[in-house]
Design a binder for these strands. Structure first.
Length: 426
RNA sequence: GGAGAGAUGGCUGAGCGGUUGAAAGCACCGGUCUUGAAAACCGGCAUGGGGGCAACUCCAUCCUGGGUUCGAAUCCCAGUCUCUCCGCCA
């Protein structure tokens, strides 16, 4: 494996356009000492120059094969070593600071501190009118005897669930239905990936170093080697192109996978403790696109449409919102969230999140492509849920519930469920 | 788990102490020829970083990390990964 020089933000760009960089950090409401970054960068370059001067001298001596200069060469070696140490320290410090800075928001993204500044861009589907008080998914699931939270607590702990019988079938049907749709209609290629990723891969997509605490880490004999359960298939799918130079003719790359996802959800104590909205383990169908950098915005629209199409086909009411700068994830430059209507909460809840990460992840991963001019550029990466299966299951339970506590099966899913039309208690 | 073999540019693959950042071939790009294409011939073609407005120039990199040496792709040590054979196992 080649040594990887990690670059999360292009320091050259920061140097050249400090003003803009500071402005975009402000949009994210972040306090970052940019002047310190620039100072580190300057020092770093100063030492590099110093080192290179010595290295050149040494090289000349070696080439001359002049024995009288050999002792001098040895002294230079010591000098280089000293400078190298200093330079490495500064470089590491610089990289550490840079690796904690999130992606720069796209110009389209509304500026705001929190979800209150998100903007609704689309509302679709008909909100169901119930002649009775609609129940929550966990009431429905427990009444059907098909969701068992207590049992999961006993075997595993809180925030896990046993899904049983026809709901387990529904979960499986959803996975297959979503995959089939993305593969056959949306031109994604199906992948069944590993569910474990290296620390390096986690760094590539932006989960590390900042969100270490949210990850389930595996216990390994050799503690220097860190491995993690994937918090989303995005990690492993996006890293498929890491350290690669992709031929332009192979772009765009579109892949989809249905995988379990594992999240510690540190810092979410007390939020959504009831039901299966927020679990430590859940299934999700994930789409990932690798594109030429200028295609990011159009691909994001395309990807988001692939996600909403699933909700259209399932005939679930939803809305699409664009996240403001303060509510966006670490690696994203622009994000659409898709929220599905939950009758028991009388609220829209997130069921998918589609993001363009521009070259933010590809810089971390060293994923590049050659364009028509033979220039090597960092690729654009995008990821989106299409959709979160657990939450889709919830949405179906709640939106398709009947007065007697049974659940109508959405028409499109029936072929995937032995053509049953209804999920009953008996 | 045992025993061997290996890791070199987009790919194949030579080099095994000194102008080797690296032969050759393939792929790719440009040109000549051709009505067009193919073939043939000519030329170009690694990545990262530093300096410079630029032409350009300098440094690093032959799996990773140490060591030997004035000098390492080449020698030594440790590690990682890959392949083959045997064992074990969904």
């Amino acid at each position: 494996m080649k040594k990887i020089i990690i670059k999360m933000h292009n320091i050259k760009d920061i140097r050249k356009d400090t003003k803009n960089f500071k402005l975009s950090l402000k949009k994210r409401f972040l306090e970052i000492d940019v002047d310190r970054i620039l100072k580190l960068d300057e020092e770093n370059r100063k030492y590099i120059q110093k080192k290179e001067t010595f290295e050149r001298e040494k090289k000349d001596i070696s080439k001359s094969k002049d024995k009288t200069l050999f002792s001098k060469s040895k002294k230079i070696t010591d000098e280089i070593e000293k400078i190298n140490k200093l330079q490495t320290n500064i470089k590491n410090e610089l990289n550490e600071v840079l690796s904690l800075i999130p992606n720069i928001p796209h110009d389209d993204v509304p500026v705001g501190k929190d979800e209150k500044s998100n903007i609704e861009v689309l509302k679709s589907g008909k909100i169901p009118n119930f002649s009775f008080t609609p129940k929550s998914h966990y009431e429905l699931g427990e009444d059907l005897n098909m969701l068992d939270f207590d049992l999961a607590t006993k075997t595993t702990g809180s925030r896990f669930v046993f899904v049983k019988d026809k709901l387990a079938l529904l979960e499986r049907a959803l996975s297959n239905f979503m995959l089939d749709t993305h593969i056959n209609q949306n031109a994604y290629k199906e992948i069944s990936p590993p569910l474990i990723a290296t620390a390096n891969s986690m760094f590539g997509t932006g989960q590390l170093p900042k969100f270490d605490n949210d990850q389930f880490e595996l216990k390994l004999e050799d503690s220097a080697d860190r491995k993690f359960l994937i918090p989303t298939a995005e990690v492993i799918l996006t890293n498929m192109v890491k350290e690669k130079i992709i031929d332009k003719k192979n772009l765009p790359i579109r892949v989809v996978a249905s995988t379990p996802c594992f999240r510690k959800e540190a810092g979410s104590y007390g939020k959504d403790t009831k039901g299966m909205i927020r679990q430590h383990q859940f299934y999700k169908v994930e789409m990932v696109s690798i594109v030429e950098i200028e295609e990011c915005m159009s691909e994001l629209e395309r990807m988001t449409n692939c996600a909403t199409k699933i909700l259209d086909l399932l005939e679930l009411p939803y809305r699409k919102i664009i996240l403001c700068t303060g509510d966006m994830g670490f690696s994203a430059e622009k994000t659409y969230d898709i929220e599905v209507w939950l009758p028991s909460e009388k609220k829209y809840r997130e069921i998918s999140s589609c993001s363009s990460c521009s070259s933010f992840q590809s810089r971390r991963m060293k994923a590049r492509y050659k364009n028509e001019n033979n220039e090597i550029l960092f690729a654009g990466t995008l990821n989106g849920s299409g959709l979160a299966i657990g939450r889709t299951l919830i949405a179906i339970l709640e939106n398709y519930q009947q007065n007697d506590g049974s659940i109508l099966v959405p028409k499109i899913l029936r072929p995937y469920m032995n053509n049953i039309e209804k999920i009953n208690k008996f």
